[in-house]
């Protein structure tokens, strides 16, 4: 960890002011010299490991007054970027109307972390790739563009099988983002030029040739919240991991169904633990729509979700595992008593 300056922002304008940077527009967000500080559970961790080296932290927690709402108004859901994971996970109406959101948060990290961590920070959490997090490895295209990828032929059990590139196979590790992407959430962004809203599905960027660029968020911009249209009581988040709690997913599925007379009217499916970004499995959704779920259909949907998956030495098992998780999550969603 290197020395840095610390500043508390009293309101959004002050925060944006403090974050205004001189960095070139091509600088990846994560390399920007000023970084907002929310719960710090990702950022401070990576600073201690010397992976992130900001010169200045702008503490945005004082903005919680405006940006920490959990609002179920008029059939839609609005979540503030500074709401804590624990706050949303335990929110009775969220649990009832959006179980996939509540569970994606509840099954993440530990109680201590969920009490610290915010939703905005959560969707910006960075990969757990061991080679990325240990700066003594020279080869990491994400940390050190053009240096190579130590994980490609190294120990890659936790790595992605979907959305990979020849540059990077790092898994997006979070859970909550799968729920957001499945529910077609919008993400609200504030910058000096004012607020804007975009589809959350467009927010993360697959590694491609530029694994250092993880999202479309630009330096100096802040996430203020998330919005979801409609309610999704028939939704589940299924997470499979090596231990029962406090561990990232080997494979997970966020499923939301609109069921009418046993027929799947609308299906939403997102995958975690297996992809480089929060992963919407649209091919699988297409297989499901207009059908009644049985074992064969669940299997076909799972196959469709992983049709393009590519495994490497230690992570190939995730393809078969991921399919099972999808099929099982679909059955759980169907079986829900609403």
């Amino acid at each position: 960890m290197r020395s840095f300056s610390y500043q508390r922002a009293s309101d959004p304008q002050a925060a944006l002011q403090a974050l205004a940077v001189t960095a070139a527009a091509t600088t990846p967000l994560t390399e920007a010299s000023s970084q907002p500080l929310a719960g710090g559970t990702t950022l401070i961790d990576l600073m201690k490991l010397d992976v992130m080296r900001p010169e200045r932290l702008v503490d945005i927690n004082p903005l919680a007054g405006n940006w920490a709402q959990v609002d179920l108004d008029g059939g839609n859901l609005k979540l503030g970027a500074l709401a804590h994971m624990s706050q949303v996970a335990g929110h009775a109406e969220v649990r009832q109307n959006y179980p996939v959101i509540a569970d994606s948060l509840k099954l993440a990290a530990s109680p201590q972390l969920r009490n610290m961590a915010t939703l905005g920070g959560n969707v910006l959490q960075r990969t757990r790739c061991s080679y990325f997090r240990d700066v003594s490895y020279a080869e990491c295209n994400k940390r050190n563009p053009g240096s190579g990828c130590a994980a490609m032929d190294g120990f890659n059990r936790m790595h992605a099988v979907l959305g990979t590139s020849h540059q990077c196979i790092a898994t997006y590790p979070g859970d909550f983002a799968q729920a957001l992407i499945a529910l077609d959430a919008a993400i609200e962004i504030t910058s000096k030029s004012g607020p804007r809203s975009m589809s959350f599905a467009e927010f993360h960027r697959a590694p491609g040739d530029t694994p250092a660029i993880e999202t479309v968020l630009a330096p100096g911009e802040l996430i203020s919240g998330f919005a979801i249209d409609g309610r999704w009581p028939r939704s589940v988040y299924l997470k499979v991991r090596d231990r029962q709690s406090y561990e990232f997913a080997l494979a997970s599925a966020a499923v939301a169904l609109d069921l009418q007379n046993g027929v799947i009217n609308d299906a939403r499916l997102a995958l975690g633990g297996v992809a480089t970004v929060p992963w919407r499995a649209r091919e699988a959704e297409a297989v499901l729509k207009g059908q009644k779920l049985d074992d064969a259909l669940a299997e076909r949907a799972a196959d469709a979700a992983f049709a393009d998956a590519r495994g490497r030495q230690h992570n190939a098992f995730k393809i078969a595992l991921g399919k099972r998780v999808v099929a099982h999550a679909l059955k759980k969603a169907i079986a829900m008593e609403i």
């Binding site: 757990r128 997090r133 231990r243 029962q244 709690s245 561990e247």
Partner: peptide, 12 residues
């Protein structure tokens, strides 16, 4: 590190 070298938690 203790995030990647797994030991059981209470739930296990």
């Amino acid at each position: 590190n203790l995030a990647d070298y797994l030991v059981p938690v209470n739930a296990d």
